[in-house]
Design a binder for these strands. Structure first.
Lengths: 112, 112
DNA sequence: ACGATATACCTCGCCTGTCAAGGTATTTTT
DNA sequence: AAAAATACCTTGACAGGCGAGGTATATCGT
């Protein structure tokens, strides 16, 4: 993983919520999507992922249910709630601001 | 502060190093510059700042010395080391990658 | 002159998020 | 039949941010 988790710390919830907006999913699949979408540059550690699910559910941002049929029965699916969508919107907003702020703080070259 | 510290967690060292590249400075001033440069959107809490200095110095990324003359005597100045510059370069690189990664993960709109 | 505010430093201990390590069980591939 | 992938989960340690508390000097308004 090219990106250290410390750098993305605090964005875990937003990442998960964003994946779930595209449709209900489960831990293993979400993580695979994250890895694929970033070209292998980032992925969650399992403990991080499941702790995040627990936190998100306790905060009412996602709900969960067990898969029913065949092989899927071992999967716990997660769905984003209305509160979760609102949270994601806020986090996206904050992320856009963060980009500007950090660019101003570390990426500038010289003073005029 | 519009940007929560959790979101910037892990970037504290880079921000400080970037300020010091522009010239030796001390805690209070660095923090004022950060606040000004971000239009008030972000600033360090004092405890965060001083623990960061300690960490950076222990890691050999900065050195420090007391100001000498008059009112400046109460100020502890910090200077970035060669290792600190290298670290900053690496952090800038990582930040650029992070932007791409997080945009891909939370800011995309729809699948084709 | 004097009180308020700004400047300037520092430490202790709590809280939160990450994650190494360990565990279980089924399904698919070789 | 063995190996690898899929799929879930918990515990405890660790690190960074920071609230709260502390000290001392300089400057500004009245």
């Amino acid at each position: 993983m090219a990106i250290s988790a410390d750098i993305l710390r605090g964005h875990t919830d937003a990442i998960i919520l964003a994946q779930l907006v595209a449709g209900d999913s489960y831990g293993y699949e979400i993580n695979k999507h994250v890895t694929e979408r970033t070209g292998g540059a980032y992925g969650f550690k399992e403990a991080t992922l499941y702790t995040a699910f627990k936190r998100l559910e306790q905060n009412g941002l996602i709900t969960s249910y067990w898969g029913e049929d065949g092989p899927g029965a071992r999967r716990r699916y997660y769905a984003v709630t209305q509160a979760g969508m609102a949270k994601l919107a806020a986090e996206r907003q904050e992320w856009n601001e963060t980009k500007g702020v950090l660019d101003a703080l570390i990426s500038w070259k010289e003073e005029p």
